[in-house]
Structures are given as C-alpha cells and as structure tokens.
Design a protein around this nucleic acid. Structure first.
Length: 554
RNA sequence: GCCCCCGUAGCUCAGGGGAUAGAGCGGCGCCCUCCGGAGGCGUAGGCGCAGGUUCGAAUCCUGCCGGGGGCACCA
C-alpha cells in the first residue's frame, strides 16, 4: 500500500463517518499521511482528526476514534492507534508494505512519475547568460537546477519547453564586439571592456576568416565582429551546456524581437490595454498600477526602445505560443525585476500569479584550498562551466549545485566534490547505487536468478531495516511531485541522500542477501534481491531527474 | 533610505503548522574469519532576539539585530 493509497483510505473513512451521520463536516478533497519522526508512532500518521475537530465541533480524540474504528477494518492496515492530542498512527501489514517493492519494479523507469502537473504547458527560461563569453559559475547553478526542474515537471506530467534568451541586442554585446575589435587591432580596450583571453581567441578566429576586417572603418568592423562573434560564442555555450547534459529547445534572440516587429506589436498591445503613456518625450508603462514601485520606460526619449520593452515583447511571444506558465530562473542581482515582470503580465491583462513564476537564486562561491575564488567576468577571471567540469566532473557538479536550496548562497568546495567518501554527497548516493548493482551482479554470477516478483513471499521483508527502506522507496512519487510543485529540485537530492542511500547502507549492514561460503540460499534471498532491485531503480530514477549517472561500479 | 535572500549542532546544510527538530563533517567510544569497511553503530551538542496568530510555530505575521545581494530613460 502506497502513501497515496493510504491517504485515500483515510479519506474514505472520513466520508463513511460523514455518511453515517457521525461527523458533520465537509470531507477534505485529499488527505495526506506523513512519516512520523519517531518510529514508535507507526509507519504513517495523519493529523486529520485534529483538523476536523473544530469544524465538527467534537474533541479531536473522539474524531480520531471514529476514524480509527473504520480504518482497522481496512485490508493492509495492521494497526491503528489514537495518540497524543488526536493523531492517528497507522501501521501497515508486512505484506502490504513489501508490495511497495513490487510496485517499484512494475513501474521501472516510470516509478516516481505522477500527474500533479498534468496538462500544464510550462515555459522554462534559465541560464540566459549574456553571449559575451563562456558560462560562469552562477549560470552553471541555473543550468543544473533549471534542467533538473524541467525534468521534475516533465515527470509530473507537464509539457516543458526549455528556453535560453540570447541578449544579442544590448550594450553588453556591443561592448563585447568592441572588445574583440580592440584585441584584433591592438587598440586600447573600451572602458569596462571584456579582458579575458578568450576574447583574443575569438577575435583571432574572426580575423582568420575575414583578414580585411582590421582595415574596415570602425562601424563596419564592429558589425563584422558582432555578426561573426555571436555564433562563435553561442556555439561554445551550447556545446558546454550540452556536455553538461542540458539541451534547450529554443534559443531566443533578443534581436529577433526587433526584426520581427514583435516589440512594436507589444507596444500596441500594451497601449490597447490602456497602461501606456507618454511623458518627457519617452513612452512609459504604468507598472506602478500593479505593485511596481515606479513606472518603467519602454521607449527612451531618443527613440531607442529599452530592454524592458524587449522583455514585454518576449513575454507576450511566450504567451502567444500557448504557454500558461512562464518560469524565470534569475540571479540574485535581478530580484528587482520580479515586480516589473509581473506588472508586464498584469498590464497585458493576464493574472501574473498564475502566468509568471520567478525563482531568484543566490550566489555560488567556488572554494578551493579553503579560499573563495573571486569571480570577475569582465576581467576574464572566473570559473566557467567547462572549468568546473574539468575540476570535478559533470555528475559532482550537477549534483552539488542542485542539492541546495537556491535561496541560500552556496559554497562549492572543489576538494570535497572529488573526494571518494561519505562527506561527498554525490559519492555517497552513487555508492549506494553501485552497491545495489554489485549485489545483483554477484547474485547473477552465483547463478541465482532474479526472482519473479509475483512468486516472492514479501512478508519475509520484516526486518526493521527492510521496513525502513521500503517506507523510503514508497515516498519517492510524492517527493517528485512536491519538488516539482515548489520548484525545488534539491528536495529530490536530499531525499536520495537522507532516506534512500542511508536506509540502503543500513539494510546492507544488517541484512545479508547472498549465501557465503558453503551456505545454502536462504528464504530471504529472493525478497532481498527484489528489494535491492527496487532500491537501485529509485536511485537511478532519482539521479536521472538531477541529470546524474547511477554507475554500475565506482 | 527602499527592496530581495539568509541566520537551525563547533563547521556545511535539510526541515512547505503537528508528537521527542534531522543528515554529513569534526569530537569521543565501538564494529572487519562475513555479499565492496569507499561502510555501519552509539554518544555529546542547536532553531539570532522580542512580540503576535494558532489547540499546536524552526515553519505564518510584525519589529529589532547580524551577514550577503540589489536600486537606472543600463542590459
């Protein structure tokens, strides 16, 4: 019996009590059971009686007793007790608990998928770093977290488009082109120009293709560097992300918004909604009507449109393509932007609470030899995606970046990331996965066939370690659904570490599976092999959601 | 000045209103004739402060105090 089945059983008990006239309440749409912290409180517990007590006008323990009487009759529930102020503590029958392993095996790669986000069309914009050089560490955090979130949403039934917004129209990109020109001609870098060595490399490649470029007038030369530089940078970014396991469906050019007339169209749309006005020669959007602290300029008094207008046009474009949820994953320096984005949606007649969802991520500190490495993109001194991968590998980088809440500043310790011991979380989880693989491999080598789930006596999985592990595996679908709903992939990682890998190691320690020496094959061998296979499946599925491999051996 | 994030064990971090707040590292003490000890077990140790909401608060609200980041007719 899974937690959701158990929750449904509890709800059914409520409905039955209501129908019998014993409880005068409206039954809740769903009832959740949770794992109690203390195992004396049973396999699962629910506080439903405490919640219903007030509307029912009855003492909580009395409500609990009503429900307990009904739940005791349910097949698969072994014991029900009323505890404390009115908790219902539930204990599953052994075979019912063991059935979780069979369910995991039956679902296989699909175990963990759920329909909590079914029918949603989600536009997921992340990374979107300026095309002025390799992806920096902050972008890598978003690559890891954003892609994992995409996988979680897909596993929860949503249709997801991963999108990278290419800022190829603004000052930063112009400055980058000017920096390449300066490098190509040996002239002085413009103020605030990009100083990294890669700038010279790009410049040299462009000069090799267009030897005449240094003799062109400055404007034309800049145009060449812009035009030729963009694909160079984008290709490199795309290749880095791809080697990181992250693929974007759409690379959306900011320039294209101007060329296609989308910006003018957006201006018209917003005007038609009545939130645009002219003042001081500029065109403004009255975002302050919707909670922004001040109005924002769409078209400057010199006639040039702002980045903000591009954002509005881009948002309207996404909506026009049928996305009902636009997710933005932005760096901490963009937090002031949230209100403006929501105001755009509101000005366009949407409800920003449903169409806009912005996640702000805090900084990443790269720690090496106990020191935080200082990062400066402009100076070209920073840890790029490729640097990080060459230092710690894709698995460690993705896992360690995705295992922390983006609300917290993250310290990524290079030494720790490569350590082969349990103080390295990615190693710990992968190790549990390889241990599962090795048991299964050894069984095969010994000529012990993998058992047919239908013919295994699941009630033999009665050891406390086995129960603990089964309960952990049963949680997986709910963990995936919650992580997707809250847009918090780190919940999956923590679950894998603290629940699955931990329980698996303890199971290993106390529950021998295969015969040693002259021993006979034990009755517990088959059910335990089944449990190891189920454990391996959950670890594989969970790691896959984070874009991390589950190796067969380390 | 205004806005956002954070403050939980000595350290790095989990804990979307529930019972006795959890992991890893570091302390201390244990466990290898045995499927991978690259592990496991035990033990000590904690919610920044003050109010509020609630039957119940680490969690929600307000105010302080500390740390990080940000304010544009830049992108």
């Amino acid at each position: 019996m899974t937690p959701s089945e158990l929750g449904a059983a509890v709800r059914a008990a409520v409905v039955a009590a209501v129908d019998a006239g014993e409880l005068a309440v409206a039954p809740p749409a769903e009832v959740a059971v949770e794992r109690p912290r203390v195992k004396e409180h049973g396999d699962y517990a629910t506080s439903i009686a405490l919640q219903l007590a007030k509307p029912a006008g009855r003492p909580p323990r009395e409500v609990a007793e009503l429900l307990a009487a009904r739940l005791r009759e349910v097949d698969g529930i072994d014991a029900v007790e009323v505890a404390g102020p009115g908790f219902l503590n539930l204990r599953l029958a052994q075979a019912s608990l063991g059935a979780v392993a069979v369910q995991v095996l039956a679902a296989g790669e699909a175990y963990g998928t759920n329909d909590s986000a079914a029918g949603q069309r989600v536009n997921l914009e992340f990374v979107s770093a300026n095309p002025t050089g390799p992806i920096h560490i902050g972008g890598v955090r978003w690559a890891a977290v954003g892609d994992a979130l995409g996988r979680l949403l897909e596993a929860s039934g949503a249709e997801v488009a991963r999108e990278y917004y290419v800022n190829d129209a603004g000052n930063q990109f112009d400055l980058f082109a000017a920096s390449m020109l300066a490098r190509a001609t040996g002239r002085k870098l413009p103020e605030g120009g990009y100083q990294g060595d890669y700038v010279a490399d790009y410049a040299a490649r462009i000069v090799a293709e267009r030897p005449d470029v240094s003799e062109l007038p400055e404007e034309q030369a800049l145009a060449v560097f812009r035009e030729r530089g963009l694909p160079l940078v984008i290709d490199e970014i795309r290749a880095s992300l791809s080697s990181f396991g992250v693929e974007f469906e759409v690379w959306f050019s900011e320039q294209s918004l101007e060329l296609s007339g989308a910006r003018e169209q957006a201006l018209k749309t917003l005007r038609a909604q009545g939130h645009v006005y002219d003042q001081d020669g500029a065109v403004w959007l009255r975002t302050s009507d919707f909670g922004d602290d001040k109005d924002r300029v769409l078209v400057k008094s010199d006639g040039a449109s702002t980045y903000f207008l591009s954002d509005a046009a881009y948002y309207l474009d996404k909506r026009g393509r049928g996305f009902d949820h636009c997710l933005y994953m932005l760096g901490a320096d963009h937090h002031g932007y949230v209100g403006r984005l929501k105001a755009i949606a509101a000005c366009a007649g949407d409800d920003p609470a449903t169409t806009i969802d912005v996640r702000i991520g805090q900084l990443v500190n790269v720690v090496k030899d106990g020191q935080v490495l200082r990062q400066s993109k402009r100076l070209g001194q920073y840890t790029s995606l490729d640097d990080l991968v060459s230092l710690v590998g894709v698995d460690a980088a993705r896992y360690l970046l995705a295992r922390s809440s983006v609300d917290s500043t993250l310290d990524l310790d290079i030494e720790q990331a490569t350590r082969q011991s349990s103080d390295n979380p990615v190693f710990y989880v992968q190790y549990a996965a390889t241990r599962a693989a090795s048991v299964l491999r050894n069984a095969a080598d010994m000529g012990i066939a993998e058992p047919d789930p239908a013919s295994v006596d699941l009630s033999l999985l009665a050891h406390p370690r086995e129960n603990e592990l089964l309960l952990a595996l049963a949680e997986f679908p709910a963990v995936v659904a919650t992580a997707a709903e809250l847009r918090e992939p780190h919940r999956v990682a923590r679950y894998l570490e603290e629940k699955v890998a931990k329980s698996a190691q303890r199971f290993w320690d106390d529950c021998q599976v295969l015969p040693k020496g002259d021993e006979e094959v034990a009755p517990t061998t088959a059910p335990r092999l089944l449990l190891w296979r189920a454990t391996r499946t959950v670890l594989e599925n969970g790691l896959r959601l984070l874009g991390v491999n589950a190796p067969e051996r380390m």
